[in-house]
Nucleic acid binder design. Structure first.
Length: 231
DNA sequence: TCGTGATCATAC
DNA sequence: GTATGATCACGA
């Protein structure tokens, strides 16, 4: 029923084509896709953390590179691979975006980077068990997600709470335990990297860059919903 | 065992 | 340093 996957030569023209490409990847091991594309599969991902995501981009026709927008801007779709167990439970949190730590006064949830990134996400589950070699990790069933009212409200609450703390100069007091479904954590090459933020006394300070991540309890619920819809 | 804080590769 | 793509790894 599915054609064999092919490396994309152009961006998908519509969502149906994007989903067809994504469905063609289901059941395929990463090693097959890599060799079919002329890529080498690393023995482990410790020094190749973004490898799986980039391989999927290649097959779906996402414009690779470091552009600060969605993977498929014409379609309004963001691509996310997510490492899972065979039961469909996520093994990692999901990075959303880095947040500015200054200039947030007056920014509303509706205009936030987080909401814009998460308006429409194509999730590609991939077996992420560390005991399985990357070459043998099989791609799962993709699904397109748009936050429903409840999900949007959960995200909004967390974003507003965290943003308020940043504005009030409390960024250094924020830990990954804040938020129900969204968390703020370091996002940098290492712990020495600095960016501008607001300090406790309102003065500008230098601190570690932070990014938003979706907690695994939240993505686990999305994956379970998708499983039920497909069964 | 697991989640938080830290880290890795690469383009510009 | 900031952006993209994420997973690692150790302390609780």
């Amino acid at each position: 029923m599915n054609d064999l996957p092919q490396v994309a030569t152009a961006a998908p023209s519509d969502i149906a084509q994007l989903m067809a490409r994504a469905h063609a990847l289901a059941g395929m091991p990463l090693g097959w896709l890599a060799s079919h594309a002329g890529w080498i599969t690393p023995a482990n991902l410790s020094r190749h953390k973004g490898w799986s995501g980039q391989l999927i981009e290649l097959y779906l026709g996402a414009s690779a590179g470091s552009k600060p927008q969605q993977d498929f801007p014409e379609l309004g779709v963001e691509l996310k691979t997510i490492p899972v167990t065979p039961e469909g439970k996520p093994l990692e949190t999901t990075f959303v975006c880095v947040t500015p730590l200054t200039g947030l006064n007056g920014v509303r949830w509706e205009d936030s980077n987080v909401r814009n990134k998460l308006r429409q996400v194509l999730w590609i589950p991939i077996d992420g068990r560390r005991e399985v070699a990357p070459a043998d990790r099989v791609i799962g069933t993709p699904f397109l997600w748009r936050p429903n009212a409840v999900e949007d409200q959960l995200l909004r609450q967390d974003w507003e709470e965290i943003t308020e703390m940043i504005i009030l100069g409390q960024v250094q007091a924020i830990t990954a335990r804040h938020g129900q479904v969204l968390q703020l954590r370091p996002k940098a090459a290492n712990s020495k990297v600095l960016t501008e933020a607001i300090g406790p006394n309102g003065a500008r300070i230098q601190t570690l860059p932070r990014g938003y991540y979706l907690k695994t309890n939240f993505t686990a619920a999305l994956l379970q919903q998708a499983l039920q819809r497909s069964s």
